[in-house]
């Protein structure tokens, strides 16, 4: 058995032999199954990710309603986007979600990590706070309508404590603030879990040493916790960038509006693409939607790369 496998291994093709001089039996078996194992998934990636991205790039340079031939228009779709105030709002909103919601969520998640570190029942708390992250945000959008409408639960509760002049929560101008609050509430648990998994890997003797040197919890956080979990922080920033561009369900039916016409002050890029391609009154503007889609992809790409640059530190070996 062993003899035959060594002879076979020695008889590998010269090209392979050059790159991989030693072929153990396992290595040979692995090499034989590599492509049959990888190709189906890779084909799926090409069909559902790479080809669509190429197509969307091409489509964004055309006008097309889905019927008849496409008409090449160059950058006209991008110019139209640039002049469309709704698109500008969508981009601004996406950035608001990225920066404002992102920063508050991070601060809260770190504060929570500090509080949870020494708290009884921390696993229970963590799993309860994590759960909203698993629920379709449509539910929260509808909840918002139920809780914050003039006769809703919040105002009922406020009435009990004697407040009768509650603000108009769902007035168009207030909606986006409420949307951001809901995003903070629903994503803090997720990022807390990630940060805690990083913080848990910090050996306790660092805290020992720090507290022997007289550092209080706040000082310990900045000199021990934050530097030693920096990798996790940068990963969180990138994860948040990716998910902030995908915010869709919450806006779509926020406060119980119809899905075909969410308040235009609340739009994000995802909503913009969906509505201009599939709900536009003037027919399907596939080219325009494709351009908006490509802008949102560029946004993710640039921000992710930028953040990686910005947050890169030398890894600290624990």
């Amino acid at each position: 058995m062993t003899t035959s496998s060594t002879t076979l291994a020695a008889g590998g093709s010269p090209a392979r032999g050059k790159r991989f001089p030693t072929h153990s039996p396992m290595e040979r078996v692995r090499r034989r199954v590599f492509w049959p194992f990888v190709l189906p998934a890779l084909a799926g990636m090409v069909i559902f990710y790479f080809a669509p991205i190429v197509f969307v790039a091409w489509l964004s340079l055309n006008k097309w309603s889905g019927f008849g031939p496409m008409r090449f228009v160059g950058t006209a779709n991008y110019q139209q986007l640039w002049l469309d105030p709704t698109f500008t709002t969508s981009i601004v909103n996406t950035f608001k979600i990225l920066v404002i919601v992102g920063v508050i969520t991070f601060v809260l998640a770190f504060a929570l990590t500090l509080v949870l570190r020494q708290m009884t029942g921390k696993h229970f708390v963590r799993s309860v706070l994590f759960f909203p992250n698993l629920i379709n945000a449509l539910i929260f959008a509808i909840f918002a309508g139920m809780l914050f409408n003039p006769n809703g639960l919040v105002n009922t509760a406020l009435h009990w404590v004697g407040i009768t002049d509650a603000p108009k929560w769902l007035a168009p101008d207030n909606q986006f603030t409420l949307i951001m609050a809901i995003l903070i509430w629903s994503s803090t648990g997720y990022f807390t879990s990630i940060i805690m998994s990083g913080v848990d890997q910090i050996p306790p003797y660092y805290y020992e040493a720090a507290s022997l040197d007289g550092a209080g919890p706040i000082r310990q956080f900045f000199t021990v916790t934050l530097p030693l979990s920096w990798d996790v922080v940068s990963v969180c920033a990138i994860l948040w960038t990716m998910s902030s561009v995908k915010v869709f369900e919450l806006i779509l039916v926020f406060g119980g509006t119809r899905a075909s016409s969410p308040n235009s002050q609340n739009w994000t890029t995802a909503i913009y693409v969906y509505l201009s391609a599939f709900q536009a009154n003037a027919g399907r503007a596939f080219g325009l939607a494709a351009a908006a889609a490509l802008v949102s992809l560029a946004l993710v790409a640039v921000l992710t790369l930028g953040l990686r640059r910005l947050l890169r530190r030398e890894a600290i070996e624990l």
């Binding site: 990636m45 990710y49 669509p52 969307v56 995908k246 693409v273 969906y274 391609a277 889609a293």
Partner: peptide
């Protein structure tokens, strides 16, 4: 390449996939 797919928002793929299926 697989990991890159994680960062692609659904709205980018929506129109091409719809057209492709049609």
């Amino acid at each position: 390449a697989f990991a890159l797919g994680l960062g692609v928002p659904g709205q980018v793929l929506l129109i091409p996939i719809y057209i492709g299926l049609a």
